[in-house]
Design a protein around this nucleic acid. Structure first.
Lengths: 196, 196
DNA sequence: CCTGTGCATTGATGTATGATAAGTAATATA
DNA sequence: TATATTACTTATCATACATCAATGCACAGG
């Protein structure tokens, strides 16, 4: 739980005494590749902090097609915030793309931490605002950019993921088919060899 | 400022003494149709509460095309949350679709209100979480649904806006051209006269 | 070593939506 | 009333991307 410890202490700026209280409330788990942590219909009762490995959240539409909402690698938190906060059934799956070590954070951990630490409250605010900013950018890209531009943006934002995640999942994240992504990549390769 | 008063007292559940303090900090303004309240590059310093009328926020891409991020009619708040919170230059325009009466809420109003009222803090949390949930749904729709399904979803969610907002703006919100929307509407009309 | 399974690529073809242009209708302005 | 101006529709053609099917790998398990 080294990463999580460091995360709490530095990013959320939790002092030692509060840390000792809080750390007792979380749980550690090894998740196997492919294991499912949340299914549509369930209320999401946890935040999953990724110690190492790789998680994803995604929806499945009427046609059975997957649409990836989020990837989460080391030091990221994956969850369905809305489901957890509003106590509503989720419409997301969360599962593991790689064998993953996660810290299980119960969804009322947030409240307890907020109650005892003002810097945690502050951290939480920032996290929410970051989430909103990130989603805003994604919406704007989906509204305005071609498959190629969305892919280039993805590479720039997540160079690490670009290597670890199978292409068909990246395609799903971008809202295109794996075949289309393959073609986009081919064109980009040509362009790089013959730049303007 | 009746709507805003009611909003603060009921939705944010502000009690009378705190209300008296807070109400002094906001400003009232009449905005003419077409008037611009925020431009890309500026830091967004206000939240705009719509007393009546209609605002929109949108981006303009490299090709000069507009992409509408949000509509805000009566009792909605329009702003660039990220810009306001992080003190970053915005990349949004905000302007008025109709003559509009707004309550100008300075961006540190949130902090002051949070400082003096726990129910405001609570309200603010819910507002952020609602924002996230709403964006999530929109992302999922953009990833998974056709123009037609996105339009039907829009009608269902915003029947009032469907009437007040010109179609080309709805198209822009949905991420399609006005021509495409026109086609979609024609097909829907046929389907309704000749249902399965 | 073979063989199955999953992923990436490629080609052929289809389709939804974009681009352009023009027409019609509605509303505002003179 | 005449004349712009703006919104919406229709038609045509163009294109990005989807779909379907086949192939080639790589790699895991027998």
């Amino acid at each position: 739980m080294q990463n999580f410890t460091k995360y709490l202490k530095t990013k959320a700026n939790i002092a030692e005494p509060e840390f000792q209280l809080l750390i007792k409330k979380v749980e550690f788990r090894n998740i196997e590749k492919g294991e499912v942590l949340l299914r549509p219909g369930e209320v999401c009762r946890h935040f999953f902090f990724v110690e190492n490995g790789l998680l994803r959240s995604y929806t499945v539409d009427d046609g059975g097609k997957e649409h990836i909402i989020q990837f989460g690698s080391e030091n990221w938190i994956v969850s369905d915030r809305s489901s957890a906060f509003f106590n509503e059934p989720s419409d997301l799956f969360i599962d593991a793309i790689e064998d993953t070590k996660v810290v299980l954070i119960n969804s009322d951990f947030i409240n307890e931490a907020s109650a005892i630490s003002s810097s945690f409250r502050n951290y939480n605010q920032i996290a929410l605002q970051n989430h909103i900013r990130h989603q805003q950018k994604r919406i704007n890209l989906l509204l305005s950019a071609s498959a190629e531009r969305r892919y280039m943006n993805f590479i720039k934002l997540y160079p690490d993921l670009t290597l670890r995640v199978p292409q068909w999942m990246i395609a799903s994240y971008l809202g295109i088919t794996p075949e289309s992504l393959s073609r986009v990549r081919k064109e980009l390769a040509h362009k790089n060899f013959k730049p303007n």
